[in-house]
Amino acid sequence: MASVVAQVERRLAELRVHHAEGTRTSVMTHVAWAPPQWAAAARRTLAGLDELHPSRTILLFPDARKADRIGVDVELRCFTIPGSSREVCSEVIELRLGGDRTRVPGSIVEPLLITDLPTFCRWRGLPPWGKPELEQLVDVCDRLVVDSSEWRGLPGAYTQLAALFDRIAVSDIAWGRSLGWRGRLASLWPDVKSVKTLSVTGPRADALLLAGWLRSRLTRPVKLSHRSAPELERVAVDGEPVPAPRGPALDASDLLSAELDVFGRDPIYEAAVSAAR
């Protein structure tokens, strides 16, 4: 029985023969960790993403309740290049990890990474802080992309996240989603300097991060008043509504796509997380 890596490589070689005209282009390796409850969402996001970021995508679907084995599927996703008859193909490697294999993803992923290109890991749901699967992927990836609005236990979970900052660059989709609102708040300078209360209608994570950002940038306390909503709908400072950002809100693929364009640590985000707790 061939190893998983050998199976993947053989299958990729076969697919490349069938798509000989397609250009193989990658700008990164994109690893996605998606437990069963997140599998469908991960596939949906990927469908809107790999046309934007040609990459080798390694989809990891862990399920410790299943048999101790690794299931493999490999496909090439080819897209016509705008304004050209040529195609560009991205590689999608789907690995279904069962039983104890869910605890050793690092050794499976590492030989499949594309050398010299950055590796992003999108972690779906709340990461299992301190567990081997998270620890291993943190060690092999350059950037961890989370969406803290998927988490329960906020703001406490930000403490565990902050513990990773010195080991891996972190992006948070909840933070990306608030960019337009942060721009609006920044445009209120210097009136916003003396703000006492920030009111946010939207996901709790987005509200906590906005408040943490204001506190850390202004180096003074800002009280948060939060009303829950699925989207960031309204922001007000000391009761005065802040004009909404222009344009429609980005969808999940676009938000992840924006995070995949960022390299290196984001000290402003890290400070916002620390002040959100």
Binding site: W189, P190, R217, L218, I268
Partner: peptide, 17 residues
Amino acid sequence: MSSREDGNPLVEGLRLR
């Protein structure tokens, strides 16, 4: 007022065009 005004700590790190 301009969001690029000097001394505005809120603009730092904003990835806005």
